[in-house]
Amino acid sequence: MTDRNIHEDRGRIQVSGFDSDRVRDREPISDWTDESSGETVGRWRRGFRKFKRNRSAMGALVVVVVMALASFFARPVEMFGVVVQPFSLAPYDPTTILYLGVDSSVNVYDPPSWQYPMGVDGSGRDLFSRLLVGGRYSLSIGFIVVGLTASFGLIYGSISGYYGGNVDELMMRIVDTIFAFPGLILALIIVAILGGGYWQLVLAFSLFGWAGYGRLVRGEVLKIKENEYVLAAKALGARDRSVVFRHIAPNAMPPLIVLASLNIGSVVIGVAALGFLGLGLDPSSAEWGTMLNATRSTLIQGPGGQIPWWATVYPGAAIFIFVMSMNMIGDGINDALDAQQTGVGRGGED
């Protein structure tokens, strides 16, 4: 899902913070000004200190790290036939049907118990194991997509902003065009065309997901490139490429990082939404949205029937907690780096 918060339409309409005119006109909100940007390192260090003091952001960071580790160590990982990760936190394989062989007393939708702490799903599989392993899909897709899109967006935006003129015009028109489609719609179509699957999902969210970064970086570049040190570098005969990558790109990083951290949450929700719509991964896979889709029908039981709430609440809560944590981290970085992202519109819907 592209993040639409930097809605800067050709330099006119912007969410505050990215309109260079308004930024200049406005009173400084922080002690950081363009002049001080020469000391980027100082800004990072200060930001890091500030982030550490932000208790909710630090808490969220712990949550995300724990979730990532838990899913990584959930089941052994094999690469090219070699076991690179031998631990298995999850007691069962996510595909194991418990009542066949393991424990014939298990029934479908058994409630949580000591042995199966999150209960049993509709196919008789251990939900706790599935939830742990399922984190692998959501988290890894989220990080991979954001890594790909942010890198591409950084390059795209730098080029566009640095060269300006017709190049900029054309490149930004392309971004405008992509922005005309809600990201979820594009992802849906791509998955419909290519079919579901892990890499298909990565592609679905990456193919157009870089546009937000492109536009953001370009706006930053426009601001920075008039700076004296950039002009000086150019005057000294530095090549374009080195100017962009040595001077401009690093300065565009703070807002990019904020946007990226917020975007991970959007991608995870997007992946889950596709899974929920039955268009993501294989229907029996342990991906959280897909699990929700599989148990969705159990929410409405017969009269007086017990709803197996564990089958819906746990996967839903896993998505929610992860996304919430990522958003808190994003807000934390935003405050720490004064990147002035408003974090708007990242519900995964856009």
Binding site: D93, T95, T96, A192, I193, L194, G195, G196, G197, Y198, L281, D282, S284, S285
Partner: peptide, 13 residues
């Protein structure tokens, strides 16, 4: 439509 529609799922280890 041009489509595919499968995701492999290994039945076990």
């Amino acid at each position: 439509a041009s489509l595919a529609g499968c995701g492999g799922q290994s039945g076990g280890d």
